[in-house]
Amino acid sequence: MQIFPCPFCGPRDETEFHFAAEAGKHRPEPAPEVTDTAWSDYLYGADAPKGRAREVWVHLTCGEFLLLTRDTVTREVLDAAALPGRGEAAT
């Protein structure tokens, strides 16, 4: 059982969290100007880094999305933060 720190609720069991996406993806818009390849890269492309990874997760019980930095090999959690602009609202 891994423990992830929700920036809003504190440390919680991994089973309360859901992986959303790798961080840093920007939705290409508007649709008519986006190529098939660019869209599929946004939708499906992954770096799946071995080691340090930045990911967007959601804490299912509070519904807040968060940025998690962790090591995908050792499974060490390095940092957890609210989405940009969200942390202030919480504090």
Partner: peptide
């Protein structure tokens, strides 16, 4: 397992 990983270890839940 729920968490993306490159580690060849299982988790308890």
């Amino acid at each position: 397992d729920r968490v993306p990983t490159h580690g060849q270890r299982g988790n308890l839940p």
